[in-house]
Amino acid sequence: MKVSSTEVQNNFGKYLVLAAKEDIIITRNGMEIAILSAIRDAVSDGGPVPGAVMEKAEEYGYGIRKASYEEFLELTRDSEERYEYIDGEIYLLSSPKTVHQTALTELFGIFYNWFQGKECIPLVAPYDITLKRNPENINIVQPDIMVICDLAEKLDENDYYKGVPAIVVEILSQSTRSKDLIKKLDLYMSCGVGEYWVVNPINREVAVYLFEDKNIIKNITYRKSEIAHSFIFKGLSAELDRIFK
């Protein structure tokens, strides 16, 4: 697919999703200048897994191996490690760095205070969220922050939440951009999440995506000293200067 640089700049989230499926050739004044493509290499049992995504282990996590949902549950049942399971791939989540945790603490504080006395409740990782693209494609993720509006109705007999959050927040690490900006964006959009916040401490940016009918309806990227705003919760906002101290 070929698109202009202006089109990519104006609809970056859309083309990140499309890049997971095919290479995007970016043009300027009719000339090809860049390619936007997914990372497709990973490690499993010491060797490469075709079509999988690799993240640097020291930064956040990495694709370990492909597995069925049942195999994932068995492999992680008695483990004290944190894992995510996305489209048949297992990811080990390693300890985040200070800049990640500082942004997480500040943003969760803003969310926690704003939702006091309201129907919805913000929760913070580690907390498993189960999302189904279809009955056969079951995924388990641990977003950094999630806003849940049906907690009491969607708890199972083991006290695990089985619904879909209204808002999901992911805070990027240097090596997780491909997973959070492509695989997770597509997963959240496809499974009924209403709004997705991507917090980038590296560039001091916050991108907010509004999803509807499995599409990106609106998206805004806030920079520098701007204030990020929620689309679906009017009045919910976060000063970037506070998030990125």
Rank of each mutant, 00 (worst) to 15 (best):
V43Y: 09
E212W: 03
E84H: 00
T76Q: 12
K154N: 13
L36V: 11
Y209A: 06
D87P: 04
Y62D: 07
Y60I: 01
Y60P: 01
S79V: 11
K56L: 14
E226Q: 15
A34I: 09
D78F: 09
G63Q: 02
G13M: 12
V199H: 06
R40T: 14
K66Y: 09
A57V: 12
A42Y: 02
I145M: 03
L123N: 01
D180I: 06
M1C: 05
F233R: 00
V43G: 11
I171L: 08
G192C: 09
E226C: 12
L155P: 08
V17T: 08
S79A: 15
H229R: 14
K118G: 10
R133S: 07
L16C: 15
R204E: 09
T27M: 10
Y15I: 08
D241K: 06
E74L: 13
V141G: 08
D128N: 12
I145A: 02
I35E: 13
P50D: 13
D186C: 05
D41A: 11
V208W: 00
K21S: 14
E106M: 10
I24Q: 06
E226F: 07
K245T: 12
R28L: 13
F115K: 01
A125D: 05
S37F: 02
G109N: 14
Y160M: 13
S237D: 06
N113V: 12
